[in-house]
């Protein structure tokens, strides 16, 4: 299949869908290539969104409606593995041999969740009641938070910064959303299990978003979530089958040991595999954090080092949904200017 469109959008997650939808509304023809069988990206897996705890599906529906546009051709199961070409005409190839030609490209390959098994000391995959934040979202969606044996957890610990701010796994950066996710999830656990005790083990509470700090406060005031400043060093299993954690309560200046029924690892964000592949088969540059590096941190955060190839969303850095959507719209502005200028030149 060989086709030529105005814009190829690589990645059908939040940023890619928003960018495709906005371009289509302005009359541009778009191919939206998504490597999975369905668009929607990570959002499909999230239950409630912070800060207002609305259902993630509402935003999903908005995006689904946005991309229902005659100017958009969605190609699912299409993993773009390389881009070649120069300003004016780009040729992208997919893993199944498809070729797409476009005048401009938006890269929206997003992020992958950190593989928590890499933090061996937490025993994810070994101890059945050590789960990730993504696993917990699934439990929320399925309606109940249960232990591996079907029991109801009485104590749940949330470990912040799993795969973020950690030289040991090669990620020096902060994933930015895990703190607020932990707070949100702790509150939701309280709503699902009455009398549950929850503990957030944090290095710093990074509540840098609108209404984040207010949720943090609500978690303390209304739900009694305990916040312990100290990163858990290891998880093991006691004779009674409960998990045992070791941390330092840095504010008490003493080590702390505690039994928990469930441990939730707040997995960070990493450059996606799809992005890695694309970077390997194109001349797109990446930063030290392995995400795509933008032409200018402040004034050109949508531009790449290839003229005519733009970025949208978390392929450049961790972002929340609000920011991803804003960043995608900004990318559209850049693409529209680029195509208009190009057209003027061509005429």
């Amino acid at each position: 299949m060989n086709s030529m469109v105005d814009v190829l959008v690589i990645g059908g997650g939040v940023a890619g869908m928003e960018a495709a939808g906005q371009l289509a509304r302005s009359g541009y023809s778009v191919i939206l290539a998504e490597k999975e069988p369905l668009t929607g990206g990570h959002l499909k897996n999230w239950y409630h969104l912070f800060p207002d705890r609305r259902d993630g599906n509402e935003v999903g529906e908005y995006l689904d409606n946005l991309v229902k546009n005659k100017n958009i051709e969605i190609r699912n199961n299409t993993c773009i593995t390389g881009i070649t070409g120069r300003k004016g005409k780009f040729t992208a190839t997919a893993s199944d041999g498809q070729v797409v030609e476009a005048e401009a490209v938006i890269v929206a390959t997003g992020f992958d969740l950190f593989d928590s098994r890499r933090k061996e000391e937490y025993g994810y995959g070994i101890y059945p009641n050590v789960i990730t934040s993504a696993d917990l979202e699934k439990m929320f969606r399925n309606g109940s938070v249960k232990l591996a044996d079907g029991g109801v957890p009485a104590r749940i610990g949330f470990i912040h910064c799993v795969g973020s701010r950690d030289e040991k796994v090669g990620n020096l950066y902060c994933s930015k959303l895990c703190c607020i996710t932990a707070v949100k999830q702790a509150m939701e656990v309280h709503e699902k299990i009455s009398g549950v005790k929850t503990f957030c083990f944090y290095m710093d509470m990074r509540m840098g978003g609108a209404y984040y700090e207010e949720i943090y406060r609500e978690a303390q005031e209304k739900y009694g979530v305990s916040f312990i400043r100290g990163k858990v060093s290891e998880v093991s299993q006691g004779y009674n089958g409960r998990l045992v954690i070791k941390a330092e309560d840095t504010l008490a200046g003493r080590p702390l040991r505690m039994e928990l029924d469930m441990v939730v690892l707040m997995a960070g964000m990493e450059m996606s595999d799809a992005g890695e592949i694309l970077a390997g088969k194109s001349s797109l540059r990446r930063g030290e954090n392995r995400f795509f590096s933008t032409a200018d941190n402040h004034t050109a955060s949508n531009r790449s080092n290839m003229k005519g190839v733009f970025y949208a969303g978390t392929c450049t850095a961790p972002m929340n949904i609000t920011e991803s959507i804003s960043h995608a719209r900004a990318a559209v502005t850049e693409v529209v200017s680029y195509l208009r200028e190009k057209k003027q030149r061509d005429e």
Binding site: F227, R229, L256, R257
Partner: peptide
């Protein structure tokens, strides 16, 4: 041992304070 053994400790004093003075919970150290 210097370790705070959370499971062996008695937190009833803190619970009582929180019940009588709910703002106790809001401390962020």
């Amino acid at each position: 041992p210097r370790v705070i053994d959370y499971d062996k400790n008695d937190r009833s004093v803190a619970d009582l304070i929180a019940a009588k003075e709910p703002t106790f919970r809001l401390c962020i150290e």
